Amino acid sequence: MKRVLRLFTIKTKLEVFMITYALGLGAVKRGQEYMIQYPGNIGKVFFLLCTGAVFIAAAKMLQAVEFDAAFGED
């Protein structure tokens, strides 16, 4: 069971960057769809909100990895 759980555990910064890249691709795609659905400034605002959420998530994941490295049980 521990081997399976390890697949869903983020342990290194490299893993965080790879996940962030995937989230960023999805956010840009969704932002493009918003710009088509909502032309004008509101579409651009939605695009920025989608991509901004990725930056916030990446920062929190990096903090968690650093915190776990400093104070983790392993």
Rank of each mutant, 00 (worst) to 15 (best):
C50M: 11
L7C: 06
D74C: 05
E73T: 13
T20R: 03
K60V: 07
G43C: 12
I19G: 03
G72Q: 04
Y34A: 14
I10N: 01
M61R: 01
I56R: 15
V28F: 12
Q37I: 08
Y38N: 10
L5M: 10
Q32I: 15
F47C: 04
M61P: 00
M35L: 05
Y21Q: 04
C50I: 02
Q37G: 04
E66M: 13
F71V: 00
V4I: 15
F67A: 09
F55P: 02
T12I: 09
V28W: 12
L23M: 14
E73P: 06
N41Y: 09
E15R: 01
K11W: 02
M61Q: 01
L5F: 10
F8I: 04
G43I: 13
E66N: 08
T9Q: 02
C50D: 09
I36C: 00
G72M: 03
A69G: 02
A69N: 05
A64S: 05
R6C: 07
L14T: 08
K29R: 10
A27F: 05
F17M: 12
M1F: 06
Q37L: 10
C50S: 07
I42R: 07
V65P: 02
A58R: 05
F46T: 11
T51S: 10
G43E: 13
T12E: 13
A27I: 02
F17I: 08
Q63I: 09
D68P: 03
T20F: 02
A53E: 11
A70N: 00
K29P: 04
E66P: 02
G52N: 14
M35P: 00
V16C: 01
A69E: 05
A58V: 00
F71N: 02
R30V: 05
G31F: 04
M18R: 15
G26M: 15
F55Y: 13
K13E: 15
P39T: 00
A27L: 10
L7M: 11
A53P: 01
P39S: 00
L5K: 05
G31K: 06
F55Q: 08
I56C: 10
Q37H: 05
A53V: 07
E66F: 06
A64K: 01
G43T: 09
G24M: 13
D74K: 11
L14P: 04
Q63W: 10
M1E: 07
A59H: 02
K2N: 08
L62Q: 13
L49D: 06
I10Q: 00
I42L: 10
F55W: 06
A22F: 08
M18I: 14
N41A: 15
A27Q: 07
Q37R: 09
L49H: 04
K11N: 10
Q37P: 04
T9K: 03
A57K: 08
A70Y: 03
L48A: 15
L5A: 08
A70E: 11
K60N: 13
